[in-house]
Every structure is written in C-alpha cells, then in structure tokens.
Write a protein that binds this DNA or RNA. Sequence first.
DNA 1: GGCTGGCTATGTCAAGCGTCATATTCTACA
DNA 2: TGTAGAATATGACGCTTGACATAGCCAGCC
Lengths: 203, 203
Amino acid sequence: MSSDTRAKMVAGAADLMSRRGVNATSMREVVRHTGTPRGSIGHHFPRGKQQLIEDALVFAGKQVSGPLQHLTETRGAVAGLRAFIALWRGTLERTEFQAGCSVLAVAVEQYVNDATEKDSEPDEAAQQHLLDLADGIFADWQRIMFTALRREGVAPARARRLAALVIASTEGTVAMCRAARSAQPLDDVRQELELVLSSALAK
Amino acid sequence: MSSDTRAKMVAGAADLMSRRGVNATSMREVVRHTGTPRGSIGHHFPRGKQQLIEDALVFAGKQVSGPLQHLTETRGAVAGLRAFIALWRGTLERTEFQAGCSVLAVAVEQYVNDATEKDSEPDEAAQQHLLDLADGIFADWQRIMFTALRREGVAPARARRLAALVIASTEGTVAMCRAARSAQPLDDVRQELELVLSSALAK
DNA sequence: GGCTGGCTATGTCAAGCGTCATATTCTACA
DNA sequence: TGTAGAATATGACGCTTGACATAGCCAGCC
C-alpha cells in the first residue's frame, strides 16, 4: 500500500518535530528514521518539506483532540483536563523527556527553507501558513475544553478564559518538564488547575 | 571597547533566538543583524555557537528576572505577576508578535551542530548543558515568584505549585499569542491567574 | 505478452552552515 | 615612539540541507 509509506513519513515527521523542533528535522532524517524511501518524498509531498510539516502538524493535533473530545464528552471537563495532562505525561515519560509538543515547536520556531531564492522575502507566507495551522490546532483544543465547561454551566467568557489557561499552562509545563527532565511541574500544575476548574464548576 | 562588540553579539543572538529559535539562528546572521565583525566570533566565543547560545540564554534570563525580582519585592506577588505578563505583552506587541521567549525555544528545540564529526553521538552533552541552563532560568523565575508568595503567607508546597503555574502558563500563552497574532490569550490568562493568586493570598 | 502509471532508488546541484587559518588594523602601555 | 597583543577582516574547508532529474521496479489491465 502506498499511503502506508506516506502515513509513516507523516508520523515520523511529527515525532521528530516534537523532539527536535521544525528546523532540526530534516527530510533525510525522517526517511532514515522511518525506513521509508527517500525518493518517494517528491511523490507524496509535491510541495516538499512545507507540506510534510503541515501534514505532521494536523496529525499531531488530531492525536490529541481525539481522546480529549471523547473524554470531555463522556466524563466532563475535569476528567478531560486529567486526561489531557496524563497524555502529555505519558509522552514525556515514554521518551525520557525527549519529546514535547510539535505544535508548540511550530509556534516557537520560525521555519526557514534553505532552497528558496533571490526574492526579497524568504518565505513569509509559508511561515504564516504554519502559524495559522498551529493556531487552529490550539483553538481546536481550546474549543473542546470550552464546550465541556459550557455544558457544565460555566459562563461563556469565563469558559473561554479557563480553556485558554488550561491549554496554555499545559503546553508551557510540558516544555518546562523537558528542560527539568522531571514530571513534577506537570503534577503541580495539574493540581492547581483541578482546583480552579472544580471551583468554577461549583459556582 | 571590545566587550561592546561582544555584548551586541549576545543581545542580537538572544533577539534572533526569541524570533526564530535556536537552529534557525546562524552566527552569520547574528553578525549581519548586529553590524558586528564576523571575525570576532572566534575571539569572543572560543567555544563557538554553543557558547554564544549559552550567553544569550543567561542574558535573556536576567532581562526578565531583574524587573521581576524588583517588583515582587517592592510591590508583592500580584504586582509581580502583572509585570511579568505586561513584560511579555510588550515584547509581543513591539515586535508584532514575532518575538517570543528564547528560553522556551531552547526547551522546545534540540540544538544540533553541523560541524561535529564521526563520534557515534552528535552532541548530547552540549544539548544537556543548554537544557540545564534553561531549567535553571525557569527555576530562577519560579523561585522569585515562590519567595513573594511565601512572604505573603502562602504555605510552601502551595507556593511552589502556584509559582510553577504562573511561569508555565505565561510561557505557554506567549507562544499561543505568537501563533494567533493576538494578545487576547495573555489577557485571559492574566485575569484567571490574578484570581487564583489573590484567592490564595486571602486565605 | 506488453504497456502504463504509481512508486522507488540514486545522484547532482547550489546554497548555507560552523569552524579554522591567515592577514590586517587598532590600541594601550613602556 | 615603538611594539606587543587584542580585535577585526576575509577566505577556504568540509559538511548537510532541500530540491530536482533520471532511471529502475512492479503491480494491474488491454
């Protein structure tokens, strides 16, 4: 099957991006890492690395939003928060704190493509597109948490702020855990976030 | 003065790192961007790019911890939180949401040096050192907030958790603001964090 | 069988990278 | 004033990168 190769490339790119970031992830390393043929890149990704990154991003986004959506719908906002954090904790510990969030990597870095030429600007449009994609994924996660809070009676504005707090603090904490090679910050933040959410729900 | 050139290189590297990330920041671009002589790199940074990054990191760390420490000491934890967030908001808006936090960039990326050879491992020790540095800076900011909370009567364990929440959520929010090209998440998160802190202080 | 079209394999290319070596200029002190 | 040492300028080297071109493979269908 052909799309098997393509899927492996996308997953491998997402994995490498979450470990090394966007610019440190080369297409050659993706194929090395996944055992996929180098020559197939041009076939599956005619727009090159930019396209690979885009696909890897939405892949990574769905990997999170899937479980998150399911759990908030079946067991509520607090359970969703716990699952969200547990999911990142799992990623961190499974990889010995080497992998983080590839969406955050895109939001923090600036993708620069070497093989672009002579126009005045490097590739501002491409970078904007990646940022739009990352923004959309963050917004997606936030919307899931927002909906769960609304369903449990939290006022719209408050729900928006709380959802932003949950997503942002978790993302930041994952990066800090990577630096500290410890999951302790995640536990600390989870504890405080649970307090905040349950107190907002009790009102 | 010689150290003037050196200081400009460090500041320029910190700025570029906060915009593009570690790997997308080349030494050639640092000297281009700062108008400093390329040949001086070897003089001021005998250990090369690794050393430049390290110096830029502690430079960026101090730029934040200075004001943060001063404000928490003179006006308390909540004022410190407001200043911390206002500081990042200023950076975001001044650069049209192009610059973020260079410490976060180090925590999210993996620095890979091209010009290393033939040993089995690339440069694991160098990367670990950068992570240690970033971890130390995060811990520094956290300690300042922790101390302020303690001074205002918050129990040690709680103060540690709250400090972690403040730093992590702010870092995450800054990255999200970059992706969204909007400071709205920062406002949302600031509002919720103020609620949390003041309620913890009221106890 | 033969052919066609989706894949794969491999090599080349220009450009950028960090580092090093060398040459030149500047500067401060004897 | 003379001179040593710091600072700067410049070019070369080996390497990797993304992109592209060419050629080989191997199904499925006439």
